[in-house]
Simulated scan of single mutants.
Amino acid sequence: MPDAPKRPTHAPADHPALPGEKVGILLANLGTPDNYDYWSMRRYLSEFLSDQRVIDYPKWKWQPLLQMVILSKRPFTSGAAYKSIWNHEAGESPLMTITKQQSAKIAETMRQHYGDRVMVDHAMRYGNPSTKSRLRAMIDAGCRKILFFPLYPQYAGATTATANDAFFRALMDEKWQPATRTVPPYFDQPAYIDALAQSVERTYDGLQTRPDILVCSYHGLPIRYLTEGDPYHCQCQKTTRLLKERLGWEDAAITTTFQSQFGPEEWLQPYTVQEVARLAKQGKTNIAVCAPAFSADCIETLEEINEEIKDSFVAAGGQTFTYIPCLNDDDAHISALTQIIDENLQGWLS
């Protein structure tokens, strides 16, 4: 058990007791609505789509459209999609369930490494638990050093940067700020690539017929973001290349695509939903799809890939569609994440 709060040595008798100093590890993922009803979905979507890292149009132009048009309809369709994948037993989204599992496993590994000197928790960029609330809880528990870990393998302004923004904004409200570090993207870390490869090999070993091609489907971004300097596209391409090399495959056995387009702009291509149809028409009627940009299964994988993208493939003549789950709380994934954490804790803990 952690030490009880104590009055600092040599402090006056009226000095408040303070908890023992710890190092905090705060894992961060995208977010989740509290429920799939209209108002829960509207609150979540409003926070998400109001983030100018995600939608960078001028507020005077975007907010009236968002609040009066998009959010009058989209909470219904998004709510239905969430309902189809919801963890009804736990009363939460799969992303929340999986993030809790990841956090618990990482916490146990850290306890084995460092005892009670480390505290592990998780937060969401949008929705609950908020980054601000979890940072405050860590400071209250005595964390004088905090490692903030956005769980996005590839960097993007709309994911990693906005998670860091929320963390830094929360720090602005603290009288006594802890020392902090942020974990950089890990798209090319050998342990992460190996965990991806193991998940592919395990799935392929269980199939009667080997897929004609593996589609690595990444979340999309407007092409404009790439031309403005965002490295996401290049990092996605490198992840696929390193996965191919680790698997020992030929170029034709694997491809990179992008999903989840939104709005009128041109996004990174090829679009997954169109590419799987093209592959089926070309005679590649047996495919597998994985999602290397997602650290945990969520609405974009469980609903979009397994339903919309799969339907596009089957409608074009596809026969066998295999979805390879995200790494989630797989032991190889947890090992990779804890290795990255250990590397970023250097100098803070022995």
Rank of each mutant, 00 (worst) to 15 (best):
I106F: 01
Y126I: 12
S103P: 00
I139A: 02
S103F: 02
R136N: 08
K132G: 06
A123N: 05
V118K: 02
F148P: 00
K145L: 10
K105H: 11
G142S: 10
E108P: 00
M119D: 04
T131D: 05
S103M: 12
V120Q: 01
Y114N: 07
Q112R: 13
F148C: 06
I139E: 00
M110E: 02
M124V: 08
M119I: 15
T131C: 11
L151H: 02
V118M: 06
Y114E: 06
K145A: 12
M110W: 03
R136K: 14
M138V: 07
L135A: 02
L135E: 02
S103K: 10
I106N: 00
R117H: 14
H113C: 12
H113N: 14
L151R: 02
A107I: 02
G115K: 11
R144V: 07
L135W: 03
E108L: 14
I146A: 03
R111C: 05
K145F: 11
Y114M: 05
A107T: 04
Y126L: 12
A123W: 03
R111M: 08
F149S: 00
L147E: 01
N128D: 15
Q112F: 08
E108Q: 14
E108K: 15
P129E: 11
R144N: 08
G142A: 11
R111L: 09
R111E: 08
T131I: 15
E108S: 14
T109M: 12
Q102P: 06
R136V: 04
I146Q: 01
M124C: 13
E108M: 13
